[in-house]
Amino acid sequence: MKKLILSLTLAASVVASPALSQTVRIGTEGAYAPYNYVNDNGELAGYEIDLGNAMCAEAKLTCEFVTNEWDSIIPNLIAGNYDMIMAGMSITEDRKKTIAFSDEYYPAEPSRFMATAGAKFDFTALKGLKIGVQGATMHAAYAEENLAAGNTILSFETFDQAVADLAAGNIDLFLADGDPLNNVAEASKGAMVAVGEGIRIGDGMAVGLRQKDTDLAATLNKALTSLKKKGVVDKLIKVYFKDGPFYSN
């Protein structure tokens, strides 16, 4: 009898749960450590995965991460395959034309060039170089606009492929976000180094949303503000990026 009651309550809760909260799907790439990546256990992990889950818990939303290739991540948001993007995406004017953004959850950081150790460049006049970027990124847009004259811009599908081609000597420079580049430089034990001055391209990273989903944006911003105040965001930044940048002080 007890068993029957238990299974009845279970059945009732299963039936009731979708009505209480609909699942919000979050699209991510899963190939951009430390923001989002697949760990050794084959599970999604990273700063954005932890932060996304914390935000959803704060806003009492049921969330689920799904992976999608980077170059179709915005079209598939608009088509409705998922409701949010958390994939190391910086706020840019170009993207604001098609999607909306929440408040930022990771401060803007200068982008950097990476090169193999020992190579010398004149950053005031880059000429005759092969410069790699990840396709459909703000770096790709920046390179097309500012570096295309006199250089060859090569676009890669993922961050890792660009690094592999730099390591193999197929490109001279790779332009990307500073943090992941520093990680790679460190792991390469001096074979690859970040070079030149930092370039400020986009604003901070934020959740990408459909423009009409203003309620979801408001809910997320409220949760994010509260998490920043509680220090949860800084704590996660400390876990994944060691020395910041932090939101407090």
């Binding site: 050794d40 992990a45 492929q161 792991a187």
Partner: peptide
């Protein structure tokens, strides 16, 4: 995926 180059210690 597994064979692709990896430069992030966190990813294995």
């Amino acid at each position: 995926r597994l064979g692709g180059a990896n430069y992030f210690p966190r990813m294995g």
